[in-house]
Simulated assay, not measured.
Amino acid sequence: MDHPWRRFRAKEGWTLIWSTLPDGLKGFTDHTTHTVWLDKDLQQTDRRCTICHELAHIERGPVPSDPILKAREESAVERQAARELIDLDALLDALKWAHNVPEAADVLWVSDDVLKVRIEHLQPDERAWIEENLADP
C-alpha cells in the first residue's frame, strides 16, 4: 500500500498548510513557495487521496496556465495518483467481493473518484489480467 504521507514528509523544503479552501478545492500546490495547501475539513480518505494528488503535482512541476494544457495535466496527475494509491493486486481483491464502487473504494482506502480513474485507465494488459482473474472461481 502506498504511503503518501511518508513520501510527503521526505520532500525536503516543502510545507503543508491546513486551511479552509474554496468550495470544491481539496488541495493546492504552490511551486513558488514550496507549499501544499489542504482543506482542513477533508475526511481521512480524501486527505490521503489529495496529498497523493498534490505529490504528483510536486513531482511533475507547475501546472501550465493554458486551459487545455492545464486540463491535460490534471488528468495525468489524477491517473498517476490513482495508480500509486491502488495496487493492481489490491484492486483485484476488492473487485472480487465488493458489490459496488463505494464498497470497493472503502476497502482500498480511496475515494470513489480515484477508484473510477484507476479502473477507467487500466492498461490493456492490466485489464486482461483483472478480467482473467475475476473469471477464476
Rank of each mutant, 00 (worst) to 15 (best):
G61N: 02
T45D: 07
E78S: 12
T15C: 15
T32P: 00
T15V: 15
Q43L: 12
A56Q: 09
S75Y: 00
T20H: 11
L55N: 04
H53A: 05
A76I: 13
D66H: 09
E84C: 06
R83Y: 01
I68L: 12
T50S: 01
L42G: 01
R60K: 08
D66A: 13
E74M: 05
E54F: 06
T33P: 11
H31E: 10
D66Y: 09
P64C: 00
T20M: 07
S19W: 14
G27L: 05
E78H: 05
R47Y: 03
A56V: 13
H57Q: 06
R72D: 10
T20G: 11
G24S: 02
T29E: 01
L38T: 13
D30S: 13
I68C: 04
T50M: 03
K26P: 04
F28K: 14
L69T: 00
T50R: 00
D39S: 09
K26Q: 10
A76E: 13
V36H: 07
R79K: 15
T35P: 03
R48M: 07
I58Y: 02
R79T: 05
T32F: 14
I58M: 03
I51P: 01
P22Q: 14
D23Y: 12
H31P: 06
T20C: 06
D66V: 11
R48D: 03
E54K: 09
T50A: 09
P64I: 12
D41M: 10
I51Q: 05
R47E: 00
